[in-house]
């Protein structure tokens, strides 16, 4: 979990990323040690599997969010879009009359397409009219929530195919199957960001958009693509949600966007763009998940849990500020 991987682009940034991820890795290790000592049952294999399942959705959302944040954007619509994807894909499974073997792939396709389409709208509007993505995605937050409620008439969809819900509780090589999906997604995202030209353009666009444009690339295409990737991840997360909980409700997902942003930021990404990594994001999601699970097991109240989570986010950004100064000196 504490593996340190970062694109080798510029010496200074590379050093700062190592520092950032080592920092979050150490913090995570300290937290785990603390809970092993003080939270009963924390280290049981059952609980470790619980944590993995519990962080799966946020990890997937945060991977998508990493792409958006790397190009200097933000996506506040995530929590509503996941509800919209879930209710439409859920209805597709229950009402289409298709056999499970066809209905589930069909639903995955629909869910990813809806997510990608909302991402496209977010990115396109942001780029076409040069408006802050904060505002555009805030608008999408309302649109998607309303659309989800309109689509279902506020009803909760259940009776999803048993094959899907079995997948939600299945294990693969001892790991929860849904967590394996999240890990695959992390691996793909890591590869794209650190081993492809497209990935380097994403970092470069976040760092210095003007320079990338002057070197002949259409930066708006790159940025819209990042929003689309973010949206597609939301579509995948919607399917995982249904597999895990066996329902799709139009009110699900409230506040998920903030959890995802928190994971990305704790993972060392800069909201200004150009800095961050998907491994950092994964560690950020782990840290939030471990924190919440460990505090649960210790019997800490939800109010206190919320306060501690907030404090950890603030500490993370303060550290980020220190690190930035250090990286400036290094480069």
């Amino acid at each position: 979990m504490t593996a340190v991987t970062a694109p080798r682009v510029a010496g200074g940034r590379w050093a700062s990323q190592v520092l950032g991820e080592a920092g979050i890795g150490v913090a995570l290790a300290a937290l785990v040690a603390f809970f092993l000592a003080f939270a009963p049952y924390f280290g049981t294999s059952q609980n470790v599997r619980d944590i993995m399942t519990q962080i799966t959705i946020n990890t997937i959302l945060a991977v998508g969010m990493t792409f958006v944040i790397l190009v200097g954007g933000i996506d506040l619509s995530v929590g509503s879009v996941i509800a919209l994807c879930a209710v439409v894909a859920g209805t597709a499974m229950t009402d289409s009359g298709l056999p499970t073997a066809l209905a589930v792939p069909f639903a995955i396709l629909i869910s990813v397409l809806i997510g990608a389409a909302t991402g496209f709208v977010n990115g396109f509007v942001t780029e076409r009219w040069v408006v802050p993505s904060f505002i555009v995605t805030l608008g999408m937050l309302y649109v998607a929530r309303g659309a989800a409620q309109q689509y279902t008439g506020a009803a909760t969809i259940y009776n999803l195919p048993p094959g899907l819900t079995r997948f939600g509780t299945a294990t693969f090589a001892g790991l929860p199957a849904v967590f394996v999906v999240a890990m695959l997604l992390v691996a793909v995202a890591w590869f794209v960001l650190s081993r492809t030209v497209f990935g380097r353009l994403i970092y470069a666009t976040g760092n210095n958009e003007e320079a990338v444009r002057l070197s002949g690339h259409r930066t708006s295409l790159i940025k819209v693509a990042c929003f689309v990737i973010g949206g597609a991840c939301v579509g995948i997360a919607a399917i995982i949600y249904m597999a895990r909980l066996g329902v799709a409700s139009p009110i699900l997902g409230q506040g998920y966007e903030l959890n995802a942003i928190a994971a990305v930021v704790i993972g060392g990404a800069s909201l200004a763009g150009g800095r961050g990594s998907v491994i950092g994001t994964l560690l950020g999601a782990c840290l939030l998940g471990v924190l919440s699970n460990g505090l649960n097991l210790m019997g800490v109240s939800d109010f206190q849990r919320t306060m501690v989570t907030g404090a950890v986010i603030i500490v993370a950004v303060v550290l980020d500020a220190y690190r930035r100064r250090l990286s400036v000196r290094l480069s």
Partner: peptide, 26 residues
């Protein structure tokens, strides 16, 4: 040295924040 200080800071903060929380019978 700064790096060590930072690590110490995040660890200490997490530990303090946790220690501050009411803990029931374990």
């Amino acid at each position: 040295r700064r790096r060590v200080a930072l690590t110490a800071m995040i660890t200490a903060t997490a530990a303090l924040a946790l220690a501050g929380c009411g803990q029931e019978s374990t």
